[in-house]
Design a binder for these strands. Structure first.
Lengths: 235, 235
DNA sequence: AGATATAATATTGTCAGACCAATTTATATC
DNA sequence: GATATAAATTGGTCTGACAATATTATATCT
C-alpha cells in the first residue's frame, strides 16, 4: 500500500486485481468490460486497455476479442513464457537443470512415501508397458518416458509442487540434447521404471531413491562427456 | 513458429523479443523508442505501447518515462511478481509450499555432498553464532535463520537452482504464519543448524537429511494443528 | 411453440491526432 | 571548461473514430 504507483496503468492494474480478489472471482468468470472499467475507474480507455493487456500477459485475466474479459485459468503459462524468453536470450546451463530435475523427482518419491500415499501402480505399470512396447517396436519412446515421470509427480499429491515441476520441465525441454540411447540403454531405463514401481508399492524410500539416482546417471554421464569436448570456458 | 498470432500486439511482442535475442542485447542496453518501433514494424503507436507494456510487466524490458526503453535485468523478479499476483488472487496452500521448501533444502544438501563440495563451514558457523546471540538476546531471529538456509543453498553451486529456490522462498514468505517459537524451540533449531554443519563437513548425506527433516518438523506440526482447527473443508 | 436465420447490439482491436510530463541533448552564458 | 537555459526527444494520457468479432434480440419459418 505504501508503494506509490506513478502511472495510472499501474493503479488500474492494482484496482482490477483487487476487484478479482475481493469478489473471490474464479477462473472462467466474466469480468467487467473495458467500458465498465473506464466508467468505474474514471480513466481513459487507453489506460484500461494497457492495464488489461498487462494482466493478460501475466496470466491473471484473458481478453477475448468481441467477447469480453474473463478471469484466467491460473496455471503458470506466463512463467513458462518468461523462462522461454530467458532461455532464448541467455541460454541455460543443462547440468544445473538436470540436477534440479533429479532433486524434484527424488522429492516426489519422498512425498509419496513419507505421506504414505498409495500409488496407482496399475496405471504406472500400464504406462511402462507402453514404454516397453515402443522400445521393442523402435517407435518414439520419449513421450512414454515423460508420461511415466509426469505421473509420479502427480502421485505426490501436491498441486503447487506439480505446477513448479511442470515449469521446470518446460524450461528443460527447451534445451536440445542429442542423447541417443540404444535399445539396451532403453530397456535398462524400462526396468528401472519397473523397479521404481515396486519400491513405491513397498514404500521403500531409500530403495526408490537409489533407483532414481541410477536412472539419472546416463544423462549426467552424457553431460560430462560434453564438458570434456567443449572445455573452452564458454559457460 | 507455426502458432498464428492473431493480434498485432502479440506479433509486435514477438518481434521485439526476437530483436533482443538476435542482437544479444544485455540488461541495461538501450532499446528502440516507441517512434522507431512504429516506423520499423509499421503499426500504430497504440499497438507498440501495449506490446511494450506487456513486455515490461513480464520483466523483459523497462520503460522509463521520457527516457526510453531499456532491456531489463534478467533475474527472476518478474516471476516473483506473477506469483505475488497469483497469491493475492488465489491464495496458496501452505502445506504444499512447506513440502516444496523441504524438498529444496534436502536437495541442496544432496548436491553439496554428492558433488563433494567443501562448504565454507566458518561462514556457516559464523551465521549460526549470530543466530544464537539473537536468540539469547531476544532479538529478531528470523533473519539469521533465513540467512543460514540461504547460504546452504549457495553452497550447492547451482545458480539456476538457487534462483528457483529464491523464487519459492519469496512465494512462501507471502504466507503469514503465526508460528511462535519459545526459546527452547529456537535453541533446538540452533543446535540442528550446528549438527547440519558437522554433517556437511563430514559429508554424511543421510545424517544431514535426517537433521534437516527434523528441522522441518515444528512447522509441519503447526500446520497439522491449523488443519484440525479449520476442518471446514475450505482448502 | 420451437428451431433457425437475420439484424441489432455490445465488446475488443487498431488507427490517428493531440497535448502533457519527464528526460535527454543542444545551446548559450559565465 | 563548468553551468544554466532552451530545444528536442520520448513516454503518459486523452479523445474520437472505425473495423472485426462475439453476443443478444428479433423476425421468420415449420
Amino acid at each position: 500500500m505504501s508503494i506509490k504507483n506513478n502511472s495510472l496503468v499501474e493503479i488500474a492494474m492494482e484496482r482490477i486485481k483487487q476487484h478479482i480478489a475481493d469478489n473471490h472471482m474464479q477462473p472462467g468468470d466474466k469480468f467487467l468490460s473495458e467500458g465498465e472499467l473506464t466508467d468505474q475507474l474514471q480513466v481513459s480507455r487507453t489506460v484500461i486497455r494497457e492495464a488489461l493487456r498487462s494482466l493478460g500477459s501475466l496470466g491473471i485475466i484473458e481478453v477475448r476479442k468481441g467477447g469480453g474479459v474473463y478471469v484466467s485459468a491460473s496455471d503458470f503459462e506466463s512463467i513458462k513464457r518468461i523462462l522461454r524468453h530467458h532461455y532464448e536470450v541467455h541460454g541455460a546451463k543443462i547440468k544445473e537443470l538436470v540436477e534440479i530435475r533429479k532433486i524434484i523427482e527424488l522429492g516426489a518419491l519422498r512425498l509419496i512415501i513419507e505421506k504414505d500415499m498409495d500409488v496407482d501402480a496399475d496405471r504406472l505399470e500400464d504406462i511402462n508397458k507402453n514404454y516397453r512396447d515402443a522400445i521393442s517396436k523402435g517407435e518414439d519412446t520419449k513421450r512414454h518416458d515423460q508420461l511415466f515421470h509426469q505421473h509420479i509427480m502427480k502421485e505426490a499429491d501436491n498441486q503447487t509442487f506439480y505446477n513448479f515441476a511442470d515449469v521446470i520441465h518446460d524450461y528443460f525441454s527447451l534445451v536440445k540434447i542429442n542423447l541417443i540411447q540404444d535399445t539396451d540403454a532403453l530397456l535398462k531405463s524400462y526396468q528401472e521404471h519397473d523397479a521404481l514401481i515396486s519400491a513405491l508399492k513397498d514404500k521403500k524410500l531409500a530403495e526408490a531413491h537409489r533407483i532414481m539416482s541410477e536412472h539419472f546417471e546416463p544423462i549426467f554421464q552424457f553431460i560430462r562427456q560434453m564438458e570434456v569436448q567443449t572445455d573452452d570456458g564458454s559457460n
